[in-house]
Computed example of a mutant assay.
Amino acid sequence: MQVVSIISTKGGVGKTTTAANLGGIAADAGLRVLLLDLDVQPTLSSYFTLRSHAPGGIYELLAFNEQDRSRLVSHTAIDGLNLVLSNDDKGQLNTLLLHAPDGRLRLRNLLPVFRPHYDLLLIDTQGARSVLLEMAVLASDIALSPVTPEILAAREFRRGTLQLMQDIAPYQRLGIEPPSLHLLINRAHPVSSNARVIQQALRDLFATEPGIVALNTSIPAIEAYPRASTLALPVHRVEYRRPRGRITPAAFDTMRALACELLPTWQPAFSRLQAGAHRRTVR
């Protein structure tokens, strides 16, 4: 099971949308996918329609070390895509884990509960520095950080997210290797020459940073993404052809490119996906 955390110390950069759409296309490619919602604002938990609703969620997993998957895992209307709901509405987990001896390693220690049953675990996190965020990163093989193409966003990325990665580096002494950090430019405006300059500046800025991979794929600022969330569907099912007259590729092509670049192990499965194959499965 590969574990990917979607992280940023800044809110509003598109972490939840990225997690939902990446999980959706991975499930349609035949992977067994589990979404883990660690955000106290449970946006990912309400993104997809649920076929079945588990009695518990992230609170039971982390507060009580619950290991009965039937009490933790809810099933979405997307075949192969399951979800551990965020149900820490009072924000108690941060305090609990802050004072627990294994707080930052608890999720990592609980992963064997899920490993035999899933190929991919995607963790959505809160847009603020916290014990929960550090715990998610330490449990991950890959950390994916969306950044909007703005200089202020780049500065926050350097100040917040990069600082987080540096702060957890001492866990190497315990044999825990921090994950590689992948930078995803999100909500890019390809028709704006100024936006393209900023995108390239971002890539150049972090090209020399050790441990950072600036992804070639970027997510354009197009209407298909909010429309897909309104329909409770992954975006590749909603826009599978490029609209006439638009320069940017179809959302299907963008998400498939992102999945292939981020998760090359399953590139053959993603490459076999056919545009529009699931368009009639709306429930």
Score class of each variant (00 low, 15 high):
residue 2 Q to K: 15
residue 2 Q to T: 08
residue 6 I to S: 09
residue 6 I to L: 14
residue 9 T to W: 00
residue 18 T to S: 07
residue 18 T to V: 05
residue 18 T to N: 01
residue 19 A to H: 01
residue 21 N to H: 13
residue 23 G to A: 09
residue 30 G to N: 08
residue 31 L to H: 01
residue 32 R to M: 05
residue 32 R to S: 10
residue 32 R to N: 07
residue 33 V to E: 07
residue 36 L to F: 07
residue 36 L to M: 15
residue 41 Q to G: 01
residue 41 Q to R: 03
residue 44 L to R: 13
residue 45 S to L: 08
residue 46 S to V: 05
residue 47 Y to T: 09
residue 49 T to R: 14
residue 54 A to M: 03
residue 56 G to W: 08
residue 57 G to P: 09
residue 61 L to Q: 12
residue 62 L to Y: 07
residue 63 A to G: 06
residue 66 E to V: 02
residue 66 E to P: 04
residue 67 Q to Y: 04
residue 67 Q to V: 11
residue 70 S to H: 12
residue 71 R to W: 02
residue 73 V to Y: 09
residue 74 S to K: 04
residue 74 S to C: 06
residue 75 H to R: 14
residue 76 T to S: 13
residue 76 T to W: 11
residue 81 L to S: 05
residue 81 L to P: 06
residue 86 S to R: 08
residue 86 S to F: 11
residue 87 N to M: 07
residue 87 N to R: 06
residue 89 D to T: 14
residue 89 D to L: 15
residue 96 L to N: 04
residue 97 L to Q: 04
residue 98 L to E: 08
residue 101 P to S: 08
residue 102 D to I: 11
residue 109 N to W: 09
residue 113 V to L: 13
residue 114 F to V: 12
residue 114 F to C: 09
residue 114 F to H: 08
residue 115 R to V: 14
residue 120 L to V: 02
residue 120 L to E: 04
residue 125 T to G: 07
residue 127 G to T: 09
residue 129 R to I: 10
residue 130 S to P: 02
residue 131 V to K: 04
residue 131 V to D: 00
residue 132 L to K: 11
residue 137 V to A: 08
residue 138 L to C: 01
residue 138 L to N: 04
residue 145 S to M: 10
residue 148 T to W: 04
residue 148 T to G: 10
residue 152 L to A: 15
residue 157 F to W: 03
residue 160 G to A: 05
residue 162 L to Y: 03
residue 165 M to Q: 08
residue 165 M to T: 05
residue 167 D to M: 07
residue 168 I to N: 03
residue 169 A to I: 02
residue 169 A to G: 01
residue 176 I to N: 08
residue 179 P to N: 02
residue 182 H to V: 01
residue 184 L to A: 06
residue 185 I to V: 14
residue 186 N to S: 04
residue 186 N to P: 00
residue 189 H to W: 10
residue 190 P to W: 12
residue 192 S to V: 03
residue 193 S to E: 14
residue 193 S to R: 15
residue 194 N to K: 14
residue 194 N to I: 15
residue 197 V to A: 15
residue 197 V to D: 14
residue 198 I to C: 02
residue 199 Q to D: 12
residue 199 Q to M: 13
residue 199 Q to Y: 06
residue 200 Q to P: 00
residue 201 A to C: 08
residue 202 L to R: 10
residue 202 L to K: 05
residue 203 R to C: 01
residue 205 L to R: 15
residue 208 T to M: 11
residue 209 E to Q: 15
residue 211 G to T: 07
residue 211 G to W: 08
residue 213 V to G: 00
residue 222 I to W: 06
residue 223 E to Q: 12
residue 223 E to M: 12
residue 225 Y to H: 08
residue 225 Y to E: 05
residue 228 A to C: 04
residue 229 S to R: 09
residue 229 S to A: 14
residue 233 L to E: 12
residue 234 P to K: 00
residue 236 H to R: 09
residue 237 R to F: 00
residue 242 R to F: 01
residue 242 R to S: 10
residue 245 G to R: 00
residue 248 T to L: 06
residue 260 C to R: 15
residue 263 L to N: 03
residue 269 A to L: 13
residue 270 F to M: 04
residue 272 R to Q: 14
residue 273 L to V: 04
residue 277 A to V: 01
residue 278 H to Q: 10
residue 279 R to Q: 13
residue 280 R to Q: 14
residue 282 V to H: 12
residue 283 R to P: 13
